[in-house]
Nucleic acid binder design. Structure first.
Lengths: 122, 122
DNA sequence: AAATTACATTCCTATATAGGAATATGTCAA
DNA sequence: TTGACATATTCCTATATAGGAATGTAATTT
């Protein structure tokens, strides 16, 4: 079987770097396609196609205004991705915690006299 | 041009749902391939191939132990994804705020009887 | 050494791109 | 109406899968 469609879900849609650029650009406020073209630096048909993918998975909203179309990032649709990645947060060590653990490991193997000593780099 | 390789970066690697399942399973502690096969419910060659992709982008670590290979999620490699999604956090409404806004909207149009109702999935 | 166990890799195929080029559609302006 | 402008869509092609089947490889046991 081939890879899943980019329109199957947000995870597939954001795999493409240009689409991430577009989402970042459209997060602050809505923009018309021409602005996206100059901002992201790819040609108009490509931008329209990427916008189509993003729209189909709900990552952007569109609004018509005359002959322009105003796109805006739907930040809510990024929340599930954020929550998935956040589920791994307990497993990565913050720099401070790592230092502490290293210090504690050292305490076990040596004396306890300097229990409160923090060594930045051994 | 075709789509970027799944091994090009973590964003592409996690586009595949089974790989996300594997990452979640391997986050808590290291497991041998056989355990992953039974846990995730796909056949062994597929699991090995997914593990290969995850390893190439650094999302898992491997360790050999006899005839077993012990895989473990490298949570650090998920941090960049987390940070990218977090950059959109200012643009979505926090749950508490949403509840408050919904409650206020409801107060205007209806009664206050169900103000504390919370819907987990909209 | 042979058999077994645990994984990885190769081969094959249907499918879904993503970009470029060309064209179509829709809207405003003169 | 005609033309200009803004955006979407279609057509074409090279490429990268992901799954299934079969096979290869390394370590352990008998």
């Amino acid at each position: 079987m081939a890879r899943a469609a980019t329109t199957s879900d947000a995870f597939n849609a954001i795999a493409e770097p240009r689409r991430r650029d577009i989402l970042t650009y459209l997060a602050i406020r809505e923009r018309q396609v021409g602005e996206i073209v100059t901002a992201v630096g790819i040609d108009q048909p490509s931008v329209s196609k990427h916008l189509g993918v993003l729209r189909r998975v709900g990552l952007v909203h569109v609004r018509r205004n005359g002959r322009h179309r105003l796109y805006r990032t739907n930040a809510e649709a990024i929340r599930p991705l954020h929550e998935w990645t956040a589920s791994f947060e307990p497993y990565w060590q913050h720099a401070l915690l790592r230092v502490k653990q290293r210090a504690e490991a050292k305490m076990k193997s040596k004396s306890e006299s300097d229990r409160n000593t923090y060594k930045e780099k051994p």
